[in-house]
Design a protein around this nucleic acid. Structure first.
Lengths: 102, 102
DNA sequence: TACACTATTTATAATAG
DNA sequence: TCTATTATAAATAGTGT
């Protein structure tokens, strides 16, 4: 992505991986916060590092996000769910996102 | 941020907000996926749009992420939790992230 | 070991379709 | 409602301290 783009696959060097994890985790949290503010969305992000450490962001509170998520899932059980698969890029694994229909 | 940067506050125009929501949601999901691959992290992202639509990404499965989250929270109940507050930028609201200590 | 720098890639605002 | 284009802002990989 910068000064020589990197391939999206696991970074083997533990040191580099930690540095990248810090930078990108910070960036992801910032983006999540911006999106929640700009678009009035309720957002929860949960990250477990490869060492098992937990990092989280919630625009409201994580428990409220999880509750709402579970409730939505229950309500949608009798409805069909559309699963759309898109490629992040041609070589990479498939990224699956699920959209509820209501 | 581009062709005239925007302030991070709720976009009032519904049409613009929707377009921005689509773009940034896509970007956030991509970043989450990249981070999970690059750094071997388990990540879950839950987004409710302002119209109540649910969008989600999980590197493994959302239920496994939520389970692990709940378990971690239980285990940490007797430990102290550090709350660190950082500014996304000087004018904006405070963004709170919580780090577990173990 | 965590920041600071910066060249470069990536994300995206405005716009049109 | 979503996609495409493009100019520009933001993110970040590699490096230095």
């Amino acid at each position: 992505m910068v000064k020589g783009k990197i391939a999206i696959r696991k970074i083997n060097c533990s040191k580099s991986r930690q540095v990248t994890f810090f930078k990108r985790r910070t960036g992801l949290m910032k983006k999540a916060k911006e999106l929640s503010i700009l678009c009035d969305a309720e957002i929860g992000v949960i990250i477990f590092s490869c060492t098992g450490k937990l990092y989280e962001y919630a625009s409201s509170s994580m428990s409220s996000v999880i509750e709402r998520y579970n409730k939505m899932k229950q309500d949608n059980q009798q409805q069909s769910i559309t699963t759309e698969e898109i490629q992040v890029n041609a070589k990479d694994q498939v990224k699956t996102r699920m959209y509820s229909l209501n």
